[in-house]
């Protein structure tokens, strides 16, 4: 490692300072090792999780073909006849992710534009902490909120809706992802140089012209990244959708029906009495891998977009 140079300087020290230097040397070395260990733990954890996911998934795919997993339209691992098609779970997840985006994106972007361009500083100082409070509410509270408040509301509007339905999950997940969209989009909007705004105003643009034609397009990459991160969060969201959306794996696009997301399925099996080591049990690793891959891809794309945006203004 990099201790070699230190050792060289140690050897060249004279006797008077040798003791102090030796102590300092070991102290520095201990600190170095300790900090490296701290960093190593998270790396090790990530690597082991991915390793376990991969190994268990590979063992799962010895029993179930990848083709069936990807194309079968039924997911009934606990019932005879067994079907291991991830489509219904994928569908439930995407339904919730899409539905929540439909709520979070317009409201979030609108709020971000308001905070960055329109709100007087004092009002912004009030709204921003409130938005952050929204981010701090535990997700189980959101789930509870969905079941007791939103679901009845959905059912009174659409009588055909079941007590557990995708729509109420969409609403709460939408609310949960709002703070992320608001704060990242607002950062992107505020990063647009003042000189661009002045350039537009100097041409006779109104505030709306400036916002719509100059500021938002200039911040677009940051805004899109915030959308992607919010979608990724919605895909990974577990507690609220487990409570609100139900546990019926179903390939449907109807938000009034009960669906099961990938995350909710993993909760169900992890808590149930499915014996470990069976193919039924290993399904959660395959599902987990699919979940991990989809959020990872979205996060990487979002990070790529964000870093490109940073380059543009530096």
């Amino acid at each position: 490692m990099r201790f070699a140079d230190t050792t060289v300087s140690l050897a060249s020290d004279d006797g008077i300072t040798g003791g102090v230097t030796r102590f300092r040397y070991w102290f520095e070395r201990a600190i170095h090792v300790f900090l490296f260990a701290c960093a190593g733990i998270s790396v090790l954890t990530t690597v082991s999780i991915v390793f376990v996911l991969l190994v268990e998934s590979v063992r799962f795919f010895f029993d179930v073909s990848v083709f069936d997993f990807l194309t079968d339209t039924k997911w009934t691992p606990l019932l005879k006849p067994q079907h291991f098609g991830i489509l219904p779970l994928m569908c439930g997840t995407l339904l919730v992710a899409f539905g929540s985006s439909l709520i979070a994106i317009p409201i979030g972007l609108g709020t971000a534009i308001f905070l960055s361009e329109y709100a007087p500083p004092r009002l912004r100082d009030v709204i921003k902490p409130l938005v952050e409070v929204l981010a701090g509410i535990p997700s189980v509270v959101y789930g509870y909120f969905a079941v007791v408040s939103i679901s009845p509301l959905v059912r009174s509007t659409f009588p055909s809706a079941g007590p557990f339905n995708a729509a109420s999950a969409c609403v709460v997940v939408g609310i949960m992802t709002l703070p992320m969209i608001i704060s990242l989009s607002e950062d992107a909007l505020r990063a647009v140089p003042r000189s661009l705004r002045e350039g537009a105003y100097a041409l006779g643009a109104t505030k709306f012209d400036t916002t719509a034609h100059v500021v938002v397009p200039a911040a677009m990459s940051g805004i899109v990244a915030s959308f992607l991160l919010a979608i990724s969060r919605a895909i990974g969201e577990t507690m609220a959708v487990t409570l609100a959306a139900g546990a019926t794996p179903k390939a449907t696009l109807n938000p009034l029906e009960s669906v099961q997301t990938m995350t909710a399925y993993i909760v169900q099996i992890s808590q149930g009495d499915t014996p470990a080591g069976t193919v039924e049990y290993r399904t959660i690793f395959a599902v987990g891998l699919a979940l991990f891959l989809s959020t990872m891809v979205i996060n990487l794309v979002a990070q790529g977009i964000l870093s490109r945006m940073r380059e543009k203004y530096e």
């Binding site: 000189s195 002045e198 350039g199 537009a200 397009p217 543009k312």
Partner: peptide
């Protein structure tokens, strides 16, 4: 009309 110290073309 106005021209600024730092050129500020729109990202268009």
């Amino acid at each position: 009309g106005m021209v600024f110290q730092k050129s500020n073309p729109f990202p268009k």
